[in-house]
Amino acid sequence: MDGTSCYDTLILARSRKPEFAGIVENATATAQGNNPMCGDRVKLSLRATDKGVAGIRHETRGCAICQASADLMAEAVTGQSVAAALELGRQFTDMLETPSAMDSAVERGNLPAGLLAFQPLRTHRSRLRCATLPWTALGEALA
């Protein structure tokens, strides 16, 4: 099958079998991201303490990219301070949205492999929103 490069095996695996799906217990914040273009919807619930994100779960209705992004985001921000979680989101979005020609300007310092797996999406501009939607919701939940 040609053209599957944006579906990294990790992305496919998590879209089929998410590890962070559901609702977190004793949530301190919730948020919802909607993409009216395709009807994708990410509902987040998270439990924040003064140390940061203690737990986070998502209920995602959407494509494989969006499902996996929500799940890998939850994995990446668990245990992070609020500031560090938001910084991951900034770097992730920046990595995807910066045109390839300006690649050298992209900082990927803190991005774990699970987030780097989305890099091939940069050549699918119409699909970027699928990956960034969960992060928009996270930004709201942490605001």
Binding site: G3, C63, A64, S126
Partner: peptide, 9 residues
């Protein structure tokens, strides 16, 4: 399989 994944492939 979501319609967007179908359309992309």
């Amino acid at each position: 399989v979501h319609p967007h994944d179908i359309a992309t492939l």
